[in-house]
Structures are given as structure tokens and as C-alpha cells.
Write a protein that binds this DNA or RNA. Sequence first.
DNA 1: GTGAAAGCGCTAACAG
DNA 2: CTGTTAGCGCTTTCAC
Lengths: 324, 324
Amino acid sequence: MADVARVAGVSSATVSYVLSGKRPVAPETRAAVEAAIRELDFTVNTTARSLRTGRSSLVALIVPDLANPFFAQLAAALEEGVRGLGLHVVVCNTGARRDEERALLAEAVQQRFAGVVITPFRLLPRDFQPVVDAGVPVVVSADVPFGPVDLISPDARAATREALRCVTAAGRRRIAMIAGPRDATGGDPRLELLRTLALQFGTSVPRDLVVRGEHTREAGAAGFGELMQRRYRPDAVFCANDAVAVGAMDKARELGVDIPGDVALVGHDDAVFASLVRPQLSTIRYPVGDVGRLAAQLLRERLDGREVRKNVLVKAEFVQRGSI
Amino acid sequence: MADVARVAGVSSATVSYVLSGKRPVAPETRAAVEAAIRELDFTVNTTARSLRTGRSSLVALIVPDLANPFFAQLAAALEEGVRGLGLHVVVCNTGARRDEERALLAEAVQQRFAGVVITPFRLLPRDFQPVVDAGVPVVVSADVPFGPVDLISPDARAATREALRCVTAAGRRRIAMIAGPRDATGGDPRLELLRTLALQFGTSVPRDLVVRGEHTREAGAAGFGELMQRRYRPDAVFCANDAVAVGAMDKARELGVDIPGDVALVGHDDAVFASLVRPQLSTIRYPVGDVGRLAAQLLRERLDGREVRKNVLVKAEFVQRGSI
DNA sequence: GTGAAAGCGCTAACAG
DNA sequence: CTGTTAGCGCTTTCAC
């Protein structure tokens, strides 16, 4: 920047102001600076900028499992969304462990990240307080309102209702769910929503048809196995996410349970593989591309100083395929 | 750090040396500093460190398509591998475009990244020279040696041979390949290898049974469609990667071509979905977890100043499933 | 409309 | 074995 200033015959302060636009610069001065910048192929040193401003140009994406295609898509969308803002996405895997989640959040504060986008899995609302107090913008992608942060959550009511309509229209009444762990962040809104809506269709999700596990394929297989040992087997199984549903399919095949003949299966998310398995997986799609873009936008608003806290709903959609 | 120094009753230089271990510190001094660090809950400001040392703590992961589960797994493995080194992974998507690849590489230099891990798609060897000259360690994950950088590549010879053995043992002789684009980095070693080995099995991959496209599901579908219009249809199709193979399956189903009855299908990579599709996809597995870990290790060696350039081979493995 | 200069927090000479 | 200090490249007051 000093070099640019010299070539342009101005002070480095002026170069800085040309770059930031934070105070008016005479047209000819600006032109000279821009020419010098091009001539020297100059780019600002973001490290120095960060040190000076106390704000890095990094956005942390904190997720339970980056290898899950759903989160991979989120990462891709977020990266695309923040690229134009001169920010970079740092990926952080928590393995769904609260201590990791907390450690990563703390690090985001210590390193003065420009923002955090997180899908919490075992965090408690109070874990966010330090981050918010430190002035680091946080966007949470989760099912339910959650601490003093911007939130992006799915409006899955209509989609879940539609799923139930299809399931019950086929005469199924014994609705089960392979839900997330009991200590997951925000309880289990997907289960609660399902239960609430089931009543509207004259059925229910009885306690002994709810099994729990991590959001993984293995846990899905285990959960499905459990359900098949129930005295009265379910004829429809909703799953916490698509990875779980795929695990359930694995187990169904192993046990000789026909899907959808014996049991209808519904996932959540619409991860890429939902349309690849056979039968194809019916699922409640959470438009992850939109989430990534929205997160980038919310971050930008915060960084621009607009402090309005937002809860943004994105419409989930029931995608009916062969598993139902 | 000044605070820590004050509490510990030493200079900030000493605190720095305790942290870095770059010069001996008396045990009692060290103890005092460590106590002060704990008391104040101090962590170093990596931004300041980076500015001073001229090296950021960021590793860029540059890939064609982060939403591809294969690269997502790579990201997860790399992140895990570098976390212990105090580094962060910044993900960068190129969309397989050379200009993006070059821009991202240039940025890694300008921002003085600690390292770059890249799967080039359309880069030329000379594109790396500036990065190497700038002293930024580069690890390339690709099929063939490639410029003055550390390389991790699959040894796919045995696996490909085994795949061909299975295919030809079933009496198939009309071998086709849906390959990558002609202008892809490094040509098309997977195709070349297949051709070479095919001769050993008394067959070949004739020119008119090679079609080309991007490494995407859509391109796979298009490629398979093309092949099915050939005067003499292939009875076995190798694909540049698993996404392409899945696209081929899509098209096969659409056209009523039975897999593996009419056509055997073999992918590359063993991305998560290979075992999900039906029939399951036979594929030449490239152990991506190992690649991520190895990349982290090579980076560490470079950062420790060990300058030996390395070409590391990781063994690919033929995974036989239902598509063959 | 522009410039001079302080200082962000750290590391690494250099000096003792 | 430890301390003093310059300075990394930038932003931003303060002064003109």
C-alpha cells in the first residue's frame, strides 16, 4: 500500500480511503490510485487489516458432520454467498459433541471471526451468550428459536402434514419415528410436529414407537431394527434425517422387510442420496442452498451494522418418492 | 500477551517463547507464565502472529465441487488432520473452471496461506510456479505428477486390472469409457490406464467407445446416452467418477437398459452413494480419508522445513458390487 | 480533499 | 536465560 501510494503520488491513507470508500476522494486522485493499483497488481493484506480492525475475514461454518452431503451442500452454498463479500469460509466439524461445539465457538470469539454459521447439535442456548457479547454475528440453522441470534429454520408444517396425508391415505396408522438423541439441541421439533399433526389425521405417534439415536446411517439401522422388534410393528417410519432413513433401509433389506410394502419410510432434508436409493426416499426437503445463501445475507446485514434480529423461515416441501 | 507477561512478572518476549518453545525457558519461569495464561484464559491472536511472521494459519482446500460427497469427505479428513497443527481449512469451490482455480491460487499467495491442498481440474503445471516461488506449500491430489509440488495420487493399476478381469471374465469385450473433458489437467490417466490394461485382456477401448464430459451426474447421463446410440453398443462402461456413473445409471433406467444385464458399470472414487444406488455401483476406490490425512502430514513436513518433494501413492482398490 | 502518525498484538533480532 | 524494541501492513484519528 505504501508502494501504491508512492507510485500514485499520494499518502497511504488516501489509498486506504480509495479502497474503502469511507471518505470522499477527488476523481483524479482516485484515478491515479486505481492506476497504481493495477500497475502494481496490488491486493490488500487482509491479515494486517484484520489486526487493525479487530475483525478477521473468516466465517466459521460449524456443523456436526461435514462428510454428510447435506452439510457439504450447505458449505458450498455459504462459500458462494460470502465470496463476494471478501470473506472466507472455515469449516469446522464437531462430530455432534457439545465440547467441540463450545470449543469452536470460543475459538471464533478469540480469533475475532467475522461471523459464525452453525447447526448446533448439543449446544445449549446459553452457550451462545459469550459469542454474542463479543459482537460476533451468529446465524443458526436449526428447527427452533434459539438464543439471541439470527435464525434460519424450516417451516415444515405444511410439508409434514402432506407427508402424513399420503401415509394415512394409504391406510397406514401405526406411525413411528427414529428421532434424534434426547439431549439434542432444541429437543426434537420434528418429532413434536409429527405428533401434533398426527392427531389431525386421527392417529398418533405412540411413545413406544419412538426410538432415538444419532443422525447417522448406523443409528438409523439400529433404530429400525428396534422398531421391528416391537410387539406391534409400525407401518410407517419417519426419520430424523435422510442418513438415518438410509440406515433404516439397510436394515429393512437385511430383515426382509419390504419398503414401501410393509413399511413406508420418510426422511428429512433431501440430501443428494435420497433420490439415489431404491426405492427412492420420500423426504421432507429442507432447501439447503437457500439456507446457505440466506446465511450469507444475514451475515452481511450484521456486518453492515443492521442489528435487527431475524428469524427467517424457509419453506420445507414434501417430496414424494417410492418409499411411501 | 502483555497482560500475561505482567501477571507472570516477565516480558512479553518470554511469554512468546514459552508458547513457541523457540528458545529455552527456565522451568519456574515457564510455570509462572503457564499459570498466568490459565488465569487469564489467554489465547494467542493468530492474526497478529500471521502479520508478524508473514504466514497465515489457513490452509486452502481448492476443489472442483465441494457439494460432491467425495470432496466433502476430503474436506472433513483434511480438517481433522490439520486441526492439531493450529491450522484452519478454508474451502474454495472452482466449479472446474480454470480461471477460478488460478484466481484462488493467486489469492493463496497474496494472503500468504500456510498451505494449499488442491485437486486441479483444468490447471496447467505452470500455474503452480508462482505459488511455489512464493514458498507456499502445495499438495496436489491428482492422478499424475504435476509441476513442482507434493503429490498424492492413486495407484490404480492393480484395481483397474482386477476390474477388467471381472468384466472380461463375464465375457464382455466391448469396453467403453465416459471420460473427463479433453482439456482436463493431466489428460486422462484413468482412460489411458484402462486402455493399456485392456490390451492385456485381449480387448481394447476403441476410440468410438470413448465419450467425454464434466465430472457430473448430468454429464454421465448424456455420455451414456451417446454410447447407447453407437452402432455397436458397449457391454461394459467405465466412468471417470461415481457421479458420472450414477448419471449413467439414470439414463440406463430411462432407456430400459439393464445394469448389469446389458451393460456392466464401473465407477471411480467410491463416494458414499456408490453403495446406495441399486444395483450397487462397482467402483475403483480411492481412499479419500487417507488422502486428507496424508495431505495434512505433507503440509506439516513442509511447514517444519523439510523440503523433500514427495510423490505419495495410495493404493486404489476395486470394490465389486452389483453393477458388474 | 489530503496527509502524518499512532498503534493493533505479536515475533525475532539484538543486547545483556 | 531474559528483556528491549522495531516493525509486519493496515485503518483511522487528528490536523491541515
